[in-house]
Structure formats: C-alpha cells, structure tokens
Amino acid sequence: MSIPEAPRRSWMQRWHVKGIVVTSLLLVLLVTSSRMTGVDVGMFFSNFGQFLNLLVRMSHPDWQYANVIVRPLLETIQMAILGTTIGAAFAVPFAVLSASNLIHNRFLRGLTRLFLDLVRTLPDLLLAAIFVAVFGIGSTAGVVTLAIFSFGMVSKLFYEVIETIDMGPLEALTSVGASKVTIIWYAVLPQILNQFVSYFLYTLEINVRASTVLGYLGAGGIGVFLQRSLSEFNYSQTAVIILATLAVVLVIDGISNHLRRVLL
C-alpha cells in the first residue's frame, strides 16, 4: 500500500465561496433595506444636539418624586411577576408539545408552533389596547397582556432549550417502562430547570420594562406616571422613574445570576 495522498480542499472550500457569498448578500440586504425605508443616518448626527439637550434636562433628578413612585413601581413589579408566572406556567406544556425531540408527530408539532407564532405576532401594545377596552383601565389589563406576551416568548425559549437536552436519560427511562409524562418529569425537567429559571427571570426583567410602556395605554403601574411626567415636560421626574426602573432591572439581573450559579 502506498502512502495515501492528503485530500485536497475543493475549489469552493479554498476560496471560502459560501462565507463570501453569504456576507455580501447580507450587506446588499442591509443597504437596500435602509434605502427603501428611507432611513437618514445623517439626521441622527445633525439632530444629536436635541438629544443632548434632553439628557441635560434629565440630569437633575427630582429625588422627592421617588416617594410618589414607590407604590406604582411595586405595582409594576407585581404585575410583571404575575404576568410572567401565568405566561410561563402555560408555556411549559406548549413547549413540550413543540419540541421535535419529544413529539414525533409532525402535524401536532406544526399546529402548536403555528399557534405560538400567532401569539408572538400580536404586538404587546395591541394586546394592551384590547384588554384595557375589555377590563377597563387598571392593572388587570396589564397582567393579562404580560401573561400572553410572556407565554409567546417563553414557550419558544423553552422548547429551544428542550431540543438541546441529552436524550440518553430519556432512552433509559423508556427502557424502564415509564409513561411519557413520567419520562418528561424524571429525564427532561431536571436537565432544563436551571435554564427555565434563567429564562423566566429574563422575561420578568423584560416585562418590568414593557409594563412601563403599557402604562401609556392605561394598563396600570409605573407607566402611567412615566407618561404624565413626559407630557408635562417634567424631565427631572422622568429621570427618577427611569433610574428606579433601572434599579429594579439590576436587582432581577442579580437574582438571576445568583440562581443560575446555585442551580447549576
């Protein structure tokens, strides 16, 4: 036997044809879409002064105002916790039904995924507007909106996590003679629990921020005050609201990091 010749890279591989084609396609896409939508990058820089002006006016936070917003801020957090919990609880079974490694029935999986896509398509502002009309102004509308919004987002994050798990333990539990539900409980959940918790907290953080916007539509929480301060051009109050929201987000982030370390 002769010494085998080292295989040669094909012409495609040698010139990185795929990489270059994909990159240039992306560039073309970027340029054409900015042309078509008429985005004027120059305006961003020429009007930068106004932005700075706003920052200057916000740079004197009205600390007295903090007392006023404690209650609505707490309400916002409660809304976010409730909405996220309800949404995430409903998301678990749907995530299981959407995971290709658990559900081999393509039709069922396609149907659940289509439903989830539909839920995610509905913008949260639209949902808020609808539920304010249904439940009236107040935090109920906010909670329902956040629940549906979280449900759509969390279920997608969850099923993507489920699809990355090690299938070995599932095989073992199947060979033991366990039922489907038992298999999921014993072999799937322990593998994904810590990522579930971290995604749950991530969604909670997003919901705290989202609920500030929802307040605009009368869905309760800190957003009502944000809107009021902005419409009164009272930027020193706006600054306090933004800082307070930032503090809450930081705390949730801290908890998230801690829990992930502990649960790993």
Binding site: D166, G168, P169, E171, A172, P190, Q191, L193, N194
Partner: peptide, 9 residues
C-alpha cells in the same frame, strides 16, 4: 447503556 444515561443533575 454505553453512556450510562443517568440524569446528571
């Protein structure tokens, strides 16, 4: 199994 297939966590 070759890979033991325990639930690691």
């Amino acid at each position: 199994f070759q890979g033991f297939n325990l639930v690691n966590r």
